[in-house]
């Protein structure tokens, strides 16, 4: 079965990012297809590469990134939500005349249409938020 997963909260602040990761892993293990994971609201913070949690803690952003690499996942950060919160890929940073970008490998920035397309194309849409 084809899933789109929406993640609406940032890592560490809320458990929803962890739950979404566990859910996506479990779905993949069962042979389901993850059509897309869409990050919205503070969920865009799952895609930063500039996060250094304590050594004994999990590294949620890296776990998403690794999972994307392993399973060729489409991890999409909402551009409107990202711009509000300071998440930029190299192209967008340049376009905005900024001096840095901070997206971790495996994520891409795109529009809200990607969420709706996921809803249309997938058999199930599951929302994780607060």
């Amino acid at each position: 079965m084809k899933f789109t997963v929406m993640v609406n909260e940032g890592p560490y602040q809320h458990q929803s990012a962890d739950t979404a990761l566990h859910f996506v892993r479990a779905a993949l293990e069962k042979g389901h297809e993850i059509f897309r994971v869409f990050f919205y609201h503070d969920g865009v913070n799952n895609g930063t590469r500039i996060a250094v949690p304590p050594k004994d803690d999990r590294l949620i952003q890296q776990e998403w990134s690794n999972l994307a690499k392993e399973h060729d996942l489409d991890l999409v950060i909402c551009i409107a939500a990202a711009q509000r919160r300071g998440l930029m890929d190299a192209a967008e940073s340049k376009r905005q005349g900024l001096d840095a970008d901070n997206i971790i490998e495996g994520f891409r920035i795109s529009g809200l249409g990607q969420l709706i397309e996921g809803g249309i194309q997938s058999d199930r849409t599951v929302v994780f938020g607060d």
Binding site: N8, F23, A26, E29, K30, R124, V126, V127, D130
Partner: peptide, 20 residues
Amino acid sequence: VDYAGFVDLTVENEKTQSWV
């Protein structure tokens, strides 16, 4: 249920709604 059971529930039920 565990996370695998969670996934099964989303398959068994045609729709999901999160009460965030």
